[in-house]
Simulated assay, not measured.
Amino acid sequence: MKTDNQSCGAEFILLGLFQFGRMNIVLFLAITVFFLVAVTGNIGLIYLIELDTRLHTPMYSLLRQLSFIDMIYISTTIPKMVANFISNNKTITFVGCEIQTFVFLLLGGTEALLLGFMSYDRYVAICHPLHYPALMSKTICLSLVTSAWASSSFNALMHTLYVFQLPFCSSRLINHFFCEVPSLLPLVCQDTSHYEYTILFSGFVILLIPFLAIIASYARVLTVVYQMSSGRGQKKAVSTCSSHLIVASLFYGTAISTYMRPHSLRNSEQEKVVAVFYSMITPLLNPFIYSLRNKEVLGALKRLMGK
């Protein structure tokens, strides 16, 4: 097949999530509302945690980081998709596609690692409460956040630089609504099977290991919780952990389905639907799951409204 020169002036065409039509306009309006609600919800949670000194703990510091990531995460894909739909211009420049891929991998990887660290925080708080100040000090919390950003930056940079130096075929049609590594590989004019093992390894380290760690942590937490004599303590622990588990299952389940699925089982249309969950739904739900199911956050909100 014929290959195109990957100059900075080259463009890709994003086929998008929807085309013009009555139902697609409804879907477009719904996604626009989702975006505005997600950004507002995450900004509100960040502001609330910053404002209320009672929430200045490692747990809420990690939650604030999560909200910041989600706010930028959803802003990486939806504004471009909305602009393309309104203008009916589905192109994205080569450099723009490269930047979008890097930022999406960076934020997605950081969130995956951060969710794992949040389960460690809950595990220490419930299973080793007397040692919590030492095991989850501000210094350790900062180190965990820094390591998440640094590890994900390296991973995102490695994959972005490699993919965008590959020879792309003359077709630049990306069957997706944003630039993502799995959706770009079908456009490459050379065998990428060896590189896909690298993607699988990255998915194992950044997605699967944290997810398994979360499951192991909460298995231990549930054991300790049901040994508690206090029914109130049981309810509070289960409520906090179940909120985190809901978010984690939705995020990891859909991301693993995309990044760790064999090439022979890939389906572009299915992958677009799955991508909606980890790129849109999760950032939308996170602030509400953590606030509506958390008495401390609700208490801070009531105090703020009272003032």
Rank of each mutant, 00 (worst) to 15 (best):
Y195M: 04
H176D: 13
N84Q: 10
I74T: 05
L14N: 05
C141G: 06
H56P: 00
I214V: 03
K2R: 06
A30G: 01
A148M: 04
C169Y: 05
I74H: 03
A10L: 02
D52P: 10
S243E: 00
P283T: 03
G203E: 05
F68L: 11
S171K: 13
L285W: 03
V276S: 02
I256W: 04
T3I: 12
G231Y: 08
P167F: 10
L212C: 09
I49G: 06
P58D: 10
G96H: 10
N155M: 15
N175E: 15
T53K: 14
S279R: 07
F104W: 07
S87M: 02
F18H: 01
L157C: 13
K272N: 13
P129W: 09
F178Y: 15
S151P: 00
T160V: 05
C97W: 11
I69C: 07
S119A: 14
Y60Q: 04
M228D: 02
L144K: 15
L185M: 13
G44T: 07
F18C: 08
D70P: 01
V103E: 06
K236D: 08
S153L: 14
A156N: 03
P79Y: 08
N84S: 08
M158P: 00
E196N: 11
S264C: 02
L15A: 02
L55E: 09
L222Q: 09
S119T: 07
N267S: 13
N155I: 06
F201V: 15
I99V: 13
L301Y: 04
V274P: 01
V205P: 06
V26L: 15
T139L: 05
S268F: 10
G306F: 12
G231M: 11
H131L: 14
D191S: 13
R122E: 03
L304D: 06
K272G: 09
S170L: 13
T77L: 00
L63W: 04
Q270S: 09
R220F: 01
M81S: 12
N267D: 14
M59H: 11
S217N: 12
A148H: 01
K80E: 07
S193P: 01
N155Y: 11
S151C: 09
V205E: 05
N294E: 12
L63Q: 14
Y218P: 00
G21T: 04
L185F: 12
Q227S: 09
I13L: 03
T223M: 07
N155E: 14
N89M: 04
G233P: 09
V103D: 03
L113C: 07
S264W: 07
F154A: 02
I25D: 14
F177M: 10
I72S: 02
Y278N: 14
D52H: 06
H128K: 15
N42I: 05
L105R: 03
Y47M: 03
P167T: 04
P133F: 08
F164R: 04
F20D: 15
